[in-house]
Write a protein that binds this DNA or RNA. Structure first.
Length: 505
DNA sequence: TCTGCCGGGGC
DNA sequence: GCCCCGGCAGA
């Protein structure tokens, strides 16, 4: 388990786990699951998913694809193959290009099997890097193997995963195991592997970002995520529509991360015309990219600097982008304008999820508490649900300011401050409404705000033009709570007969 | 009838 | 800007 976990951690498979899609779509047979699980660490193994293979081949055949390796199995070649749930050594008998099948003579079992080429990998490749044909062979060689050797994959000690990472992984993994996203761990692991395998072309396919060339394997693992082929041909329209409907480049990116983060049932969004974009939250940037890879890379390269060396800054990019839902047209437009900062991305209908920046595990530099993950569940947003839910943490700071709302900002990261504020309630009431609202604040890099300064920098988009009267809330109001006789304890708004600021709906 | 709060006005 | 209140509308 530990090794599996470490594998997951290493690949940031939490994102990847989401890619799997509903297990029901393609319930893997038992042996297959087992097989896949074992197969996970193999870097060359491509997912069995045929559609993924198709995609893979397509991309691989494209010129300029790097980090890929073609493998032509020669008779007599020593290979590894998965058989009976374990890795077996065998010799290649025959490699049928047409069917992409390889006949292998298993040395251990003393029998001959025929399996798909992607289930076979060269034994020599595992070590250094043997007789694989050079990638230039390209067009003629029909079989390819994406290999991550060209990517700087940080070595991770398989069993020496830090406890907090394990905890985080476990928590997040469990969170990602909604009935929809749940899938056998083996498959999950497999996808970690297949994701890694697909990364190179994922990366190369990502054209919408500004693309730094310093692609670390670590990150690509987290991002290549959405192999556009969940292992279910009868995938739901959600997947079909998004992963395949937009063949541009990052197809499928958005199917993973957000869903993973939001841990919500699949049909929740990805409605036909809605596209998920990723917006850089860095001050004065606002760059909008189509892919999570792109945005991470953007943040990492442009804002954070490429501090791949430091574990401390790993994954910090996560805190600097947010996911936005856009109409397809708007998304296209934004993507077209992705080269320039689009801070005023006008048609942003909604920030469907709180920016990752708000997620509790802040960068280590700002994290003073231990390795625990306080209230992770409560922070994991659930899309629109959380916004309408009473007492939601994600209630965006209202622009209604009949009272001074003392707030303080918690430096989540050098440039992002989580502002927590509540109504200026008298002492007796302060316990009644612990957290009224939170809002993200961005400080100018050159002008770091005092940590405890009480002002809100970012507010929600202006309230909808409410010619119509605001519906009455269900929550108690100051009048009810304190009574008319304790009017002095009411919030200012209530005293002024304005919308109550203490008991927001 | 009570309650929440918008809109307006006085200071 | 602070404060108050008439009056509307929902409960």
């Amino acid at each position: 388990m530990a090794s599996v976990l470490s594998r997951r951690l290493g690949k940031r498979s939490l994102l990847g786990a989401r890619v799997l899609g509903p297990p029901g779509a393609a319930p893997p047979s038992e042996p297959q699951a087992e097989l896949l699980d074992g197969v996970a660490p193999q870097p060359f193994l491509v997912s069995k998913d045929t559609s993924c293979q198709e995609q893979l081949k397509e991309v691989l055949k494209a010129p300029g694809t790097s980090g890929l390796q073609q493998v032509a199995f020669q008779p007599g070649q020593k290979v590894y193959v998965w058989y009976g749930g374990q890795e077996c050594t065998g010799l290649v008998e025959q490699h049928s290009w047409a069917e992409d099948k390889v006949t292998v003579w298993l040395l251990d079992q003393k029998l001959q099997i025929c399996c798909k080429a992607e289930e076979v990998w060269l034994a020599e490749l595992q070590g250094a890097f043997p007789q694989a044909p050079p990638p230039e062979q390209g067009s003629q060689a029909p079989a390819y193997r994406p290999v991550s050797r060209n990517i700087d994959v940080p070595k991770r000690k398989s069993d020496a995963v830090e406890m907090d990472e394990m905890m985080a992984a476990m928590v997040l993994t469990s969170l990602s195991c909604s009935p929809v996203v749940q899938s056998p761990p083996g498959v999950e692991a497999n996808f970690s592997a297949s994701r890694q395998a697909c990364d190179p072309w994922k990366e190369s396919g990502d054209v919408s970002d500004s693309g730094s060339s310093t692609t670390s394997g670590h990150w690509s693992a987290s991002s290549g995520v959405s192999t556009p082929s969940p292992p279910h041909p009868q995938a739901s329209p959600k997947y079909l529509g998004d992963a395949f409907g937009s063949p541009q480049t990052d197809h499928g990116f958005e199917t993973d991360s957000d869903a993973f983060l939001l841990d919500e049932p699949a049909p929740r969004k990805r409605k036909n015309s809605v596209k998920v974009m990723y917006k850089c939250l860095w001050p004065n940037c606002g760059k909008v990219l189509r892919s999570i890879v792109g945005i991470k890379r953007h943040v990492k390269a442009l804002h954070l600097g490429d501090t791949v060396d430091s574990d401390q800054f790993k994954r910090e990019e996560d805190f600097y982008y947010t996911e936005v839902q856009m109409k397809e047209e708007a998304a296209v437009a934004a993507a077209a304008a992705a080269g320039t900062p689009t801070a005023d991305l006008a048609p942003i209908p909604s920030v469907t999820s709180p920016p990752l920046a708000i997620l509790p595990p802040p960068p280590p530099k700002a994290q003073t508490s231990g390795p625990e993950h306080p209230g992770l569940e409560s922070y994991l947003p659930s899309g629109a649900l959380s916004k309408s839910a009473p007492g939601s943490f994600w209630h965006i700071q209202a622009d209604h300011a009949y009272q001074a709302l003392p707030s303080f900002q918690i430096p989540v990261s050098p440039h992002i401050y989580t502002s927590i504020s509540w109504a200026a309630a008298p002492s007796t009431a302060s316990s009644l409404s612990p957290v009224r609202s939170r809002s993200l604040s961005f400080s100018e890099p050159q002008q770091p705000p005092p940590a405890m300064k009480s002002h809100l920098i970012v507010t929600s988009p202006p309230r909808a033009q409410s010619s119509a009267r605001k519906a009455r809330g269900e929550a108690k109001k100051c009048r009810k709570v304190y009574g008319i006789e304790h009017r002095d304890q009411w919030c200012t708004a209530c005293r002024w007969k304005k919308a109550c600021q203490r008991f927001l709906d």
